[in-house]
Amino acid sequence: MSMTVLTVDDSRTMREMLRLALADAGFRVVQAEDGIHGLEVLQAEAPQVIVTDINMPRMDGFGFIEEVRGDPKHRAIPILVLTTESDAEKKNRARMAGATGWIVKPFNPDKLVDAIRRVAA
């Protein structure tokens, strides 16, 4: 059974790139447009890994990670944040919020898939 990955990103471009890279690697991909939408998707889906952007409307990546970590049902799901190399502050905030790891944007599909395999059982 293929692994399900939830991606949370407000940018259509990024969503399409993530879908392309992940589907190519054989993952099942479910997508959300922001943190609130991501939480809604989690009601119906049980992804093995979540990949989330940070800057999003309504609920940003930090808030989203905190919500997932605070939910007994979902707190064990590894969460990778998409971040830029230059932004150590955001990376640290994401870690504080409970991010499992990070992927540097613009991401290399191999690295993305590799990072997912690293954090998922």
């Binding site: 990024m14 800057n55 830029t84 991401f107």
Partner: peptide
């Protein structure tokens, strides 16, 4: 604050895609 956040996000997204 959401206005400046949205403005920031707009430029941030453009940068992100441009990077790709």
């Amino acid at each position: 604050p959401e206005t400046i956040n949205a403005v920031f996000r707009a430029v941030h997204s453009i940068k992100g895609g441009a990077g790709a």
